[in-house]
Design a protein around this nucleic acid. Structure first.
Lengths: 274, 274
DNA sequence: CGAGCACTTGATTACCGTCAAAAACAGTGG
DNA sequence: CCACTGTTTTTGACGGTAATCAAGTGCTCG
């Protein structure tokens, strides 16, 4: 199915790991210490005392918890610049684990509280970070009520924007299918099937251990006229009214259409199976 | 199906509306103005400028947004003491609507920011409120990946605890089936079927427009030994190991078992259909 | 009492989960 | 470089759960 050279693959895998960032959260800059974690190691464990807040410097982290029937539920992914551990309870409700090799800045909450007292800006930024996290969870709530293909599309778009905002047409995802499945509330098989479906439609190229999306850089100037085709492909039907089309344009799938250039060339379903 | 007297019903319906509360959020007390909204009226609209924060004084509010295919997705319910509008973006991402007649305290964010500058406590409380909301959404994330019956059970427990924490064995829910369905990502028919199922099992009594749960007050002293029966009923299987049982006890369904006294008397499925 | 809405129930369909096997891939050692 | 091994992913067949479609019942209110 995949015809990527191993060169491309290596480039792909490095994209997620090497990117550092100069501290995006200004008020936290300079405080705390930097720690490194190996791939698959746990940074915080569920029920650990929540004494620190963590900012990802490089690599990818996910937070998760086990549900009663032994299934792992991933609550979120965190990339360079993201902050996790904001639960604000005595104990962490989620385990945080390194997906790749990771560097994090660790800040004591005590220290942070002291800063809050002296500097209003810090308080506001903390609030802002938590609010961003809240907004993300609310988006997710909406997403989890939608069919599998849309969940996967939305996930890819979200990851594309967050994990690698500077690249135009090549994006690497560090997590495994199982991680995606546990995040989207699907099974690994369904995730795989949806990815295959998107590949059949010419939207992505996926390979082992890292997913590569071929995305044309559109910068918002995608011809709206053609989006109907995309709509037809993803949803199996066209928007009936102009209003419906416009609403769709602001939806997860609509954003998909502006990112993936699926509107030219191959029409949905026309490709034969491998 | 229901044999409630109209007396009970009236009592039930009033329970949600009449309860006010002395401001639970101390630092916000005294600021802002109180506004009343009629049932079904919209308090904020999606894309409105987000200039205020709202605290529910009495009644019930829900927040929602339309998805691309015209389905309404409810993001949350808010009862007396709850705060909504915390998204912290320029514009509201969700519409807030009164489910019952509602009184809310409306606080300008500008005013709040001024308070934050002068009083660290205010900042911390704001942060705490946002974190509570975040934790709730994360719980929900877990829930949405589980089967329909569990979603409904968890929903009932959550509502029972939040909407009416003082009553022991009689609880009124102000929202319609459609609201529940839009919140849990189910259809109205499925919600109805799950409620019927629970009623058949003797856990609840549901009637038109308001759901009444008959809950024995247990105050945490439910005999653990019997919970296995409940487990068997809800999940169709027993916990195989002690560890599995213990994990389950801290799960949504486990909490259900400590609230609904379903462990004595009628065994699951023994009751004939109406 | 009748109209309209909310809810329930039943029959059928479709999507996704489960189980099983095969294929692709990474890492190891020869 | 290649064969071997274990892991991850893909693919297929099948079944179950929940959505859809369609009546039917119960509740509220004029």
């Amino acid at each position: 199915m995949s015809n990527l050279t191993s060169d491309t693959k290596r480039q792909t895998l490095r994209a997620g790991d090497d990117k550092e960032h100069s501290c995006r959260n200004a008020s936290i800059a300079g405080v705390g210490i930097v720690r490194s974690y190996a791939r698959k190691s746990q940074i915080v464990r569920e029920n650990d005392l929540a004494e620190h807040i963590y900012e990802v410097i490089s690599g990818t982290v996910c937070t998760w918890k086990m549900s009663s029937d032994g299934r792992r539920q991933i609550a979120g992914f965190y990339f360079a610049g993201d902050v996790f551990g904001l639960e604000n309870a005595k104990n962490h409700s989620l385990t945080a684990q390194a997906i790749t090799a990771v560097k994090v800045r660790v800040v004591k909450k005590q220290v942070l509280n002291a800063l809050v007292s002296s500097d209003v800006k810090v308080a506001q930024q903390l609030l802002s970070l938590t609010a961003v996290e809240l907004a993300r969870q609310q988006e997710l709530h909406l997403l989890l009520c939608r069919p599998a293909l849309e969940r996967v599309i939305h996930f890819l778009i979200d990851m594309a924007q967050r994990s690698c905002p500077n690249e135009d047409d090549l994006i690497a995802l560090p997590m495994h299918r199982q991680d995606i499945a546990d995040y989207l509330g699907l099974t690994i098989e369904t995730v795989s099937r949806m990815l295959s479906e998107l590949e059949r439609r010419g939207a992505i190229k996926s390979n082992y251990r890292s997913i590569v999306l071929y995305i044309k850089s559109t910068n918002g100037r995608t011809p709206i006229k053609k989006l109907g085709d995309f709509f037809e492909g993803v949803k199996g039907r066209r928007p009936k009214t102009d209003q419906e089309l416009n609403e769709w344009l602001t939806s997860p799938e609509g954003k998909a259409a502006t990112l993936f250039d699926l509107t030219s060339g191959s029409r949905w379903g026309e490709r034969a199976r491998s």
